Amino acid sequence: MAQIELRLNAELRTEFGKGAARRIRRDHKIPAVLYGHGTEPVHLTLPGHDTMLALKHVNAILTLDFDGKEELALAKDVQRDPIKPVIEHVDLVIVKRGEKVTVDVPVHVEGEAGPDTNVIVENGTLAVEADVLSIPELLTVSVEGLEAGSQILAKDVQLPAGATLAADEDLLVVNISQQVAAEELEDELAEAEEEAGIEKDEPAAESGDEA
């Protein structure tokens, strides 16, 4: 499924610095900067709630309405508060209809691998080049029935029409490993402890045994 286009009403920003940014956030808005295609950076204020909803869509294409004009943009960098669910700042890059962009697209694993296996996602995203209005939301990878030792590389991932792989084609995406039984895991741990010279304390004898 291609990405959707979302519209945001933005405002030109004339105040700068940490104090101005704090005031913008107190008004439930988000400071942002828009640049690209040889233009001078434009400082904007975005509506907080609508922007947070829009950026839940990975690689969402945003139509920004400001100062009587429109610009298509892609979020390049989103700075989030490490504790609170708040966006602190957004870097936006201008894009044009018909051009291609390179973006990281999430990998979605589906299906059940063979019995007694572990499915390990080594790379959760893949760099893909696609038309700006046809960016895939995700790349689906099936592990149905795959046995231990199987690997899915970037070149094995099926891409939608019009998209091309920008990542290394031999990049490991999904690895199927053998599931280790609990007994084997305990034996391996005991062996590792023995090699490291770690001695376990013997359990204390019960009082009834001492009588």
Rank of each mutant, 00 (worst) to 15 (best):
residue 33 V to S: 07
residue 81 D to Q: 13
residue 51 T to N: 13
residue 76 K to N: 12
residue 41 P to K: 07
residue 34 L to Y: 12
residue 50 D to I: 00
residue 83 I to C: 01
residue 93 V to K: 10
residue 72 L to I: 01
residue 37 H to I: 02
residue 38 G to W: 08
residue 88 E to G: 00
residue 57 H to L: 05
residue 94 I to F: 02
residue 51 T to P: 11
residue 44 L to G: 10
residue 49 H to R: 15
residue 76 K to H: 10
residue 63 T to L: 12
residue 43 H to M: 07
residue 46 L to F: 08
residue 77 D to C: 02
residue 79 Q to C: 05
residue 72 L to N: 11
residue 66 F to G: 02
residue 64 L to A: 08
residue 68 G to A: 07
residue 95 V to E: 14
residue 42 V to M: 08
residue 48 G to V: 08
residue 67 D to A: 15
residue 78 V to N: 13
residue 85 P to K: 05
residue 61 I to H: 04
residue 66 F to D: 13
residue 45 T to Y: 01
residue 38 G to C: 05
residue 71 E to V: 00
residue 84 K to M: 11
residue 54 A to R: 03
residue 104 D to P: 00
residue 74 L to I: 07
residue 57 H to M: 12
residue 70 E to R: 12
residue 87 I to N: 08
residue 87 I to T: 14
residue 104 D to W: 00
residue 75 A to F: 01
residue 93 V to T: 11
residue 48 G to K: 08
residue 87 I to D: 06
residue 62 L to T: 05
residue 56 K to H: 13
residue 68 G to C: 06
residue 105 V to G: 09
residue 83 I to Q: 12
residue 66 F to Q: 10
residue 90 V to L: 10
residue 41 P to E: 09
residue 36 G to K: 11
residue 102 T to C: 03
residue 40 E to Q: 06
residue 50 D to E: 15
residue 76 K to Q: 15
residue 59 N to A: 01
residue 60 A to Y: 05
residue 86 V to C: 05
residue 75 A to I: 04
residue 91 D to K: 03
residue 68 G to R: 02
residue 34 L to T: 08
residue 54 A to T: 00
residue 69 K to G: 03
residue 79 Q to K: 08
residue 95 V to N: 02
residue 85 P to N: 11
residue 33 V to H: 11
residue 67 D to C: 06
residue 102 T to V: 13
residue 93 V to I: 14
residue 78 V to G: 11
residue 93 V to A: 06
residue 90 V to T: 12
residue 78 V to D: 14
residue 34 L to S: 13
residue 38 G to I: 03
residue 62 L to P: 04
residue 78 V to P: 04
residue 90 V to Y: 12
residue 92 L to A: 11
residue 49 H to G: 00
residue 74 L to H: 04
residue 65 D to Y: 07
residue 87 I to K: 04
residue 103 V to Q: 10
residue 33 V to N: 10
residue 55 L to D: 12
residue 92 L to S: 03
residue 69 K to H: 14
residue 39 T to Y: 10
residue 102 T to L: 01
residue 105 V to N: 12
residue 79 Q to D: 14
residue 77 D to W: 03
residue 55 L to I: 05
residue 95 V to W: 04
residue 96 K to R: 14
residue 66 F to L: 05
residue 95 V to I: 05
residue 45 T to N: 05
residue 71 E to G: 00
residue 46 L to R: 10
residue 80 R to Q: 12
residue 40 E to N: 07
residue 59 N to I: 02
residue 95 V to S: 13
